[in-house]
Structure formats: structure tokens, C-alpha cells
Simulated scan of single mutants.
Amino acid sequence: MQIETPRLILRPWSLADAPHYVTMSKDIGYNCFASPGVYLARDANDLNAKIQKRMDTFDRHGISKFPIFRKQDGVFIGTCGADFFEFESRPEMEMGYRLLLAHWGQGYASEAALAMRDYLFHKVGAHSLYGFAVKQNSASIRVLEKIGFRYRQVIDYEGMEHQLFEGRPAL
């Protein structure tokens, strides 16, 4: 499985992607709206376990937060994909994206998110998707709006207030 856009390639993780995971775990842009330390790996075993968890999610459900690479030079720029979260006492699919700081402001998040939205609706068969961001992350909120998600409500996620958006397939 591989998703291609005009400028990007999104594909499942492999254990060979460990250097990319380390890069994202230390990047200020990737982590600035996340709970502190959530992506850090304590050692090589922890690093492999974090990557393996993403691989297992893909193997079981066809979804993951996939690494994103620039087509022109193969540079790793961030992640985009989906995972499950608990909403109103039921599991729902959350779509998210995070970029390394050096790649902000170039339209990559919108490009990846649009392709991922289409993959999740048309290949995975999702009936609805959710995306959320802290209100201070206006760029992420604009991406959700740009790909057709609509504001639904405020939720608490990992102890922080987030704006929740919902997307549904076009009829």
C-alpha cells in the first residue's frame, strides 16, 4: 500500500524507519501541540515497540499514522493517517497529521490530509472521520476545514481542550 500525491508519498512504517521516528520525536514542530514526551523513545527496544505498534495497527485495520516523504528527494517530512480514539463511549477513527517544523507552511499537511481522507473513505470504508486540534493550532484547524471537515464541539483529549471536527464522505 502506498498513497501518492503530486509531491508526496505516504506508506506504512517499517522497522528500517527508526531514524525517521527518532527525527520526529526530537523535532519541536512535530511535538509542539502534543503532550510532552509522547513520541520519545527511551531506548532501542522502546523505539522498535513504538514503530511495531504502528505496523500492527496497519496490519489489523489498514490504518496508521503513516510516514510522509517528499517525492522529489525522499526526505521524511512528518506523518499523516488515522488511529482509533474513544468518543461518546464508542471507538471512532481519528485522522491526524504532524509535520517537522522545517516543512510547515508549504501546503504539505493539506495535500497529505486530502489524500488520506480519500483513502480512509474509499479504501478503508470509513463512514465518518474525526480530527481535532487545540484552538491555538489554527493552521491544523484550517487544514481540517479545507478538506471538508466541520466543527462539532469542544472535547477533552489527553487532559487538553481540543476543537473536534467531523468529516463524512461526499454523496
Score class of each variant (00 low, 15 high):
Ser89Glu: 12
His61Glu: 14
Phe85Leu: 03
Ala16Thr: 14
Glu88Lys: 10
Met24Trp: 11
Gly37Arg: 02
Phe58Cys: 06
Gly167Trp: 06
Arg117Ala: 01
Leu114Asn: 10
Met24Ser: 15
Asn137Ser: 09
Ala16Asn: 15
His162Val: 05
Leu8Asp: 12
Phe132Ser: 00
Thr23Val: 15
Arg90Cys: 00
Asp59Arg: 14
Glu111Ala: 13
Gly74Asn: 10
Ala109Met: 05
His20Tyr: 15
Arg42Pro: 00
Asn48Ser: 12
Arg11Phe: 05
Asp59Pro: 00
Ala102Phe: 03
Arg7Val: 07
Gly107Lys: 11
Ser25Leu: 07
His103Met: 03
Ser14Lys: 14
Tyr97His: 08
Arg150Asp: 11
Leu144Tyr: 06
Val134Phe: 01
Gly29Arg: 02
Gly37Leu: 10
Ala126Thr: 02
Ile63Thr: 05
Gly74Arg: 13
Phe149Gly: 00
Gly131Ala: 11
Ser89Cys: 03
His122Pro: 01
Pro91Gln: 10
Ala139Gln: 10
Tyr130Val: 03
Tyr130Thr: 01
Leu15Ala: 13
Phe76Trp: 13
Gly167Arg: 03
Ala82Trp: 06
Leu99Gly: 06
Tyr21Ala: 11
Cys32Phe: 05
Glu92Ile: 00
Tyr39Phe: 14
Phe165Arg: 07
Arg117Glu: 00
Thr23His: 13
Met93Lys: 09
Ser14Gln: 13
Gly37Ile: 11
Glu94Ala: 08
Gln153Ala: 11
Pro6Cys: 08
Ser35Leu: 05
Leu164Met: 11
Asp46Val: 03
Asp27Ala: 05
Ser35Lys: 05
Met116His: 05
Gly29Glu: 03
Phe76Gln: 12
Lys135Phe: 07
Phe121Gly: 01
Arg7Thr: 13
Ala102Trp: 02
Pro36Gln: 08
Glu94His: 03
Asp27Gly: 03
Lys135Met: 06
Ile3Leu: 15
His122Glu: 13
Pro19Ala: 08
Asn48Lys: 14
His127Asn: 11
Ala139Arg: 14
Asn45Glu: 14
Val124Thr: 06
Ile28Gly: 06
Ser89Trp: 03
Val124Asn: 04
Gly62Arg: 10
Gly125Lys: 06
Arg98Ala: 15
Tyr130Met: 02
Leu129Arg: 01
Glu92Met: 02
Ile51Ser: 05
Glu145Cys: 10
Phe84Met: 02
Lys123Met: 02
Gly107His: 10
Phe85Thr: 01
Tyr30Leu: 00
Ile3Phe: 08
His103Thr: 00
Gln52Thr: 14
Lys65Gln: 07
Thr57Asp: 07
Gln106Met: 07
Glu166Met: 14
Met160Phe: 04
Leu10Gly: 05
Arg7His: 13
Leu129Asn: 00
Trp13Asp: 08
Met55Cys: 09
Asp83Phe: 04
Asp73Phe: 07
Asp17Ser: 12
Gly81Tyr: 04
Asn31Arg: 07
Ile155Phe: 03
Ala18Leu: 12
Gly107Arg: 10
Gly159Ser: 08
Ala133Val: 02
Lys135Thr: 12
Trp13Lys: 09
Val38Met: 11
Asp17Thr: 11
Gly125His: 09
His103Asp: 09
Gly107Ile: 08
Ala139Cys: 05
Arg7Pro: 06
Gly125Trp: 04
Ala139Tyr: 04
Lys71Leu: 12
Gly131Asp: 02
Lys65Gly: 00
Ala113Lys: 08
Ala82Met: 07
Leu164Glu: 06
Gly159Phe: 01
Tyr108Asn: 04
